[in-house]
C-alpha cells in the first residue's frame, strides 16, 4: 500500500479535517503515515495544501512534483495551482464551485472558470468533477464538501483506502452528532 495524496483549497474549507480522516483511516489499517499541513496566516482565505503520505519507505512528509497519485481539490483554481504535483495517470477530484478572491475584483488577475475547468479536462487523465452546489443543496449543508470529495475519491479507486476505512475514521475523529450528516456526505453522488 502506497498513496501520496495532496489536498488543496482555500483557508477555511476544511482540508485539514479531510487530511486527518485519511491519516486516521491509514493508521487503523496499521500502515505508516506522514502528513504536512498549512497552518498560519494562509488559513485566512489564502491557498492551503495538505500532504498525506501513506505506506512504507517514506522519508519526507511532503510529496515532490509529479509524485501524487491523488489530488483532492476543494476549488478549481487551486486544482490548477497544484496540478504539477500529480503524477502521470494520477487522479484529480475537484469541486466545481469557484471561490473568487477579493483580489480578482479589485484589480488583480481575474477568475476565468471556463478556462480553468477546460484546462483540467484537457490535462488530467482521470478527472472527477464534483457538483458542490448540488451536494450542498441535497445534503442541506455546504460544510461537508470535504467528506463529499473524500467519497468521490474513494469511489474513483485512486487510492487503497475504502469507504469503510473512512467511515471508521469519521466515528473516531468526529463527535457523534455529526456522524449521520458526514456518512451521508461520504455516500453522496450526483
Amino acid at each position: 500500500m502506497r498513496d501520496d495524496i495532496i489536498l488543496c483549497g482555500v483557508g477555511g474549507q476544511g482540508t485539514v479535517l479531510a487530511s486527518r480522516l485519511l491519516s486516521t483511516a491509514a493508521m487503523r489499517r496499521g500502515v505508516p503515515v506522514k502528513a504536512a499541513e498549512t497552518i498560519g496566516m494562509a488559513q485566512r482565505g489564502g491557498s492551503v495544501t495538505s500532504h498525506v503520505r501513506i505506506g512504507e519507505g517514506v522519508s519526507s512528509p511532503l510529496v515532490g512534483r509529479g509524485g501524487a497519485n491523488l489530488l483532492m481539490a476543494f476549488e478549481p483554481a487551486e486544482a490548477v495551482r497544484q496540478l504539477a504535483y500529480v503524477r502521470q495517470g494520477g487522479t484529480v477530484v475537484v469541486s466545481n464551485r469557484p471561490i473568487v478572491p477579493v483580489s480578482a475584483v479589485t484589480g488583480g488577475p481575474t477568475y476565468d472558470l471556463d478556462a480553468i475547468m477546460g484546462y483540467l479536462e484537457q490535462r488530467v487523465d482521470n478527472l472527477v468533477v464534483v457538483d458542490a452546489d448540488a451536494a450542498a443543496a441535497e445534503l442541506g449543508s455546504s460544510r461537508v464538501l470535504n467528506v463529499v470529495l473524500l467519497g468521490a475519491a474513494i469511489r474513483s479507486g485512486a487510492i487503497s483506502l475504502d469507504a469503510d476505512d473512512i467511515r471508521e475514521a469519521i466515528s473516531i475523529r468526529l463527535p457523534e452528532r455529526f456522524w449521520e450528516l458526514n456518512l451521508r456526505a461520504l455516500d453522496w453522488a450526483h
Binding site: V10, Q43, G45, G46, P101, S103, P109, T110, I116, Y119
Partner: peptide, 18 residues
C-alpha cells in the same frame, strides 16, 4: 525537465480579513 504547458491565468489568493 517537466514539460511546460501554458496554464490559464490564476487569481492570486493572499490571506484576507475574514
Amino acid at each position: 525537465k517537466a514539460p511546460e504547458t501554458a496554464s490559464p491565468q490564476l487569481p492570486v489568493r493572499p490571506p484576507v480579513l475574514c
